[in-house]
Simulated scan of single mutants.
Amino acid sequence: MRDDGGCVFAYDPNIPTTHSSVLWRPEVFPGVLLLTEAPSAFATAPFSAAAIGPVFDERADADGREIVIRDSSGELHISLRHAEAERHPAIILPLDDMMELRLDVAASLVRRLCRKDVDLLPARLRLTPLQKARLIQLLHTFDILRDGGGRRDIAKEILNSEQARLPSVEWKDSAARRKATRLVQDATALVERGYLKLLRGD
């Protein structure tokens, strides 16, 4: 919350833009797996990120350390929330509305640790090539809007449509204008917290 020192953003704005990987808050992205220290009675093996896959990035702060592992199936974020989490690890599984997805992610981690060939992330958290292309299109659309452009500019630069050059009367009823209008609506919704649905696999 704004009034108690919390962060209202899904991604911490205090992280420099030069940071090489986006570190999402675990409460909004089930692809962040939380590790803490296991109860002393459990005989657990030490956690090794290298046993899961290539370590792409890592960062330490007051909340602990986060390791980003990346392969062709996506990025898995391991958030170590205790000083002994690596030596004596246990998985935290919040019982929220993303519990099933979190459980799938945890199961993938366990299978990787058992040297099984499985994807890092469940299918719901992975973007298809078509989804990636659409998201790039929407972000490009938003950039045009932010820079003062309009639907004609979007039709020209995003849709590569010759209809962008039509006179006003014809442009008003053109297919390109309707498509540009839809892009504007979807791009605005995406930037205004719509991206959270992607993080949740919706």
Rank of each mutant, 00 (worst) to 15 (best):
A85I: 05
L76E: 03
R177E: 15
V184K: 02
H77W: 15
E162F: 09
R124G: 06
A62V: 10
I154Y: 00
V68T: 06
L101V: 15
D119H: 12
Q185K: 08
A51T: 05
L103E: 15
A83D: 13
L103C: 13
E58N: 13
L35E: 05
L183Y: 02
V55W: 13
L34M: 14
I67H: 00
P13I: 08
F29K: 01
S20Y: 15
P129E: 14
L35W: 02
E27Y: 12
R87I: 14
R165K: 11
G150E: 01
D143I: 06
L199V: 14
L159K: 00
Q137A: 06
H77D: 12
A60D: 03
R177Q: 13
V110G: 07
E58G: 06
V32G: 03
I136V: 11
E100R: 13
L33N: 04
A133S: 04
S40Y: 00
A83F: 15
D12R: 03
G194P: 13
N14D: 15
L127H: 01
A175D: 14
A123T: 10
K197F: 07
C7I: 15
Q131Y: 00
V28Y: 07
C7D: 07
I52H: 01
T128S: 05
R124C: 03
L130E: 12
E27P: 09
K132T: 09
K132D: 06
A45G: 08
L35P: 01
C114Y: 14
D71I: 08
P16H: 07
R152C: 00
K116Q: 12
L93K: 08
H88Q: 12
G148W: 08
S168D: 15
L120V: 05
D153Q: 06
G194R: 07
F142C: 05
H82M: 11
S20K: 14
N160Q: 12
E100F: 08
Q137H: 05
A155T: 12
T44A: 00
R2I: 12
R134H: 03
P122W: 09
P16K: 13
E162M: 11
K116V: 10
I67V: 14
K172Q: 11
Y11M: 09
G6I: 01
R152Y: 00
A51K: 05
R146F: 11
L33W: 06
T188F: 02
K179G: 03
C7G: 06
R111W: 05
G64N: 07
A41C: 05
D153C: 00
R65K: 05
V191N: 02
V184I: 02
D96W: 04
R193D: 13
A38G: 06
Y11E: 08
P122N: 11
P26H: 08
A83T: 11
M99I: 14
A189N: 01
E66S: 10
V55I: 15
D4S: 10
A106M: 07
F47Y: 04
